Computed example of a mutant assay.
Amino acid sequence: MNESDERGRRWTLALGVEPEDAQGGGLSDSDRRMSAALTALYGDGEDVPKKGRGGLGGSAPRVAKWLGDIREFFPTPVVQVIQKDAFERKGLRQMLLEPEFLATVEADVNLIADLVSLRGVMPEKTKETARIVIAKVVAALMERLERRTADAIRGALDRSRRTSRPRFADIDWPRTIRANLRHYQAEHRTVVPERLIGFLRQQHRIVDLDEVTLCVDQSGSMASSVVYASIFAAVMASLPVVATKLVCFDTAIVDLTQELADPVEVLFGVQLGGGTDINRAVAYCEDRIERPGKAHLVLITDLYEGGDAEALVGRLARLSLIGVNVIVLLALTDTGRPAYDPALSAKVAALGIPVFACTPDQFPGLMATALRRGDIAGWAAEQDIKLIRSDN
C-alpha cells in the first residue's frame, strides 16, 4: 500500500465506515471489523449499528465478541481506555454482574475498583469469577511492585557508611566505576571492578521495628488509590523490618491489618463509596500508635472532609509534634494527578506535613525516604512532584 492509500485508509477509519460503504474505502476485512468495533462504542446511536450509528447492545455474548475484537486490534493500554469509555458511555457496569462477560474483559486497576464496589450486589457465581479476575490483577501488580518495594524498604540504607563487601543490590555503581577506571578493558569497552564500594544497611532489632500505618480513604473517588495501597500494605506486611497496618475508612472504619497475608481478601474487605470522616479515622490510628518516634502515618485521601476539618488539622499537628512522621498522599494512582480540597490541603501543608500525590512506581522510593526520616521535599523535587504549599 502506497503512502496515499495508507493516508486514505487512516482517514476512513478515523471518520467511520457507513454500512452501505463497508465494501469500499480500500479497507480490508480486518479494517472493517476494527471500524465496526469503534463505531459500536463511539457512534451516536443506542443499540444496533446503522447509518452513522452504533451500539454495544445488551447481551453478554455480543459484548464479549466486541471485547474480543478490540483486544485483537489494539494494545492493552488502549483496550483499557476503550473499556472504561464503554462502561461510562454505554451503561455496561451491570454487565460486570455476569460471569460470562466478566471472564472476557481486560482486567486492570480501574476494573478491580468497579468489581470491589459492586461485590455487595453480585450473585455468588459472579463473585467467584470476580475473585479470580482480582487475583490475576493482584498477581501482576505484585510482580511489578513487590521486589522494588522490598528492596527500597529493606534498603533504608545508611548512605553515610560504606563497605567494600556490599551485596549486589547495595553497590554504589558511580563510586565503584570511578574507583576502577584504571581497569578499563578497551577491547571489551567495559570496566572490570577490582574493588566494590557499597552502602551498609541499617540493622533493625525486632523490638525496634518502624511502625507504618496506611490510613486509606475508601470513598468512591479514591478507588484506584485503595487498590494500590492495599497491594503495598500486603507487600510491606511480608517484610520483617517494618510493622505494617492498613486502615480503610469512609464514615466507618475497617482495620484490615489481620488480612494482609492475602491481598485479594483485603480488597474484598474494602467497601468503596459512602461519605468521609477523616478525623475519626486518624483518631483511630492515633490510639494504636505505640512509639511515636518510630511511627509513620501515611494518610491517603483527597482531604474532602465530611467530618470535623478543624479537629483533623489539630490532630495531625499533635501527631507531628510528638514525633510521628506524617505524610498525606492526595492520590496513589498511575497518573499521579489528584482532585483534592485545596483549602484543607493548604492548612495541612502549613503544619510542615508533606502533602502531594504520587504514582505506584514512586511509592517505594517515598517509603524508603520516610523510613530514613529523610527529606521528603527533596525527594519529591527529584521526582518532579509538586508539593502542596501552605499559600495555595
Score class of each variant (00 low, 15 high):
residue 130 A to H: 07
residue 168 F to A: 10
residue 127 K to G: 14
residue 196 L to F: 12
residue 174 P to I: 07
residue 212 V to S: 12
residue 176 T to Q: 06
residue 100 E to D: 13
residue 109 V to P: 04
residue 153 I to M: 08
residue 109 V to R: 00
residue 108 D to F: 07
residue 125 K to C: 00
residue 209 L to I: 01
residue 205 R to P: 01
residue 162 R to E: 10
residue 144 R to S: 03
residue 139 A to Q: 06
residue 114 D to Q: 14
residue 219 S to G: 08
residue 178 R to P: 00
residue 167 R to A: 12
residue 207 V to R: 12
residue 131 R to G: 04
residue 199 F to V: 10
residue 180 N to C: 09
residue 143 E to D: 12
residue 124 E to M: 10
residue 213 T to D: 13
residue 202 Q to L: 12
residue 110 N to L: 03
residue 157 L to Q: 08
residue 114 D to Y: 13
residue 195 R to A: 04
residue 125 K to Y: 05
residue 116 V to M: 03
residue 98 E to W: 02
residue 143 E to S: 04
residue 223 A to D: 10
residue 141 L to F: 15
residue 142 M to F: 11
residue 112 I to F: 03
residue 122 M to Y: 09
residue 208 D to W: 08
residue 173 W to Q: 03
residue 135 A to P: 03
residue 119 R to T: 11
residue 132 I to Q: 13
residue 194 E to Y: 07
residue 139 A to F: 01
residue 217 D to H: 11
residue 188 H to T: 12
residue 195 R to Y: 01
residue 199 F to R: 08
residue 172 D to G: 06
residue 105 V to E: 02
residue 146 E to M: 09
residue 100 E to W: 00
residue 184 Y to V: 09
residue 164 S to L: 10
residue 163 T to V: 08
residue 171 I to G: 11
residue 186 A to W: 14
residue 218 Q to S: 10
residue 193 P to Q: 03
residue 214 L to V: 00
residue 131 R to N: 05
residue 145 L to W: 09
residue 111 L to Q: 06
residue 207 V to W: 09
residue 185 Q to L: 15
residue 180 N to P: 06
residue 211 E to Y: 01
residue 146 E to D: 13
residue 203 Q to S: 10
residue 175 R to A: 15
residue 222 M to H: 02
residue 124 E to L: 12
residue 136 K to Q: 09
residue 130 A to V: 10
residue 206 I to L: 11
residue 188 H to Q: 15
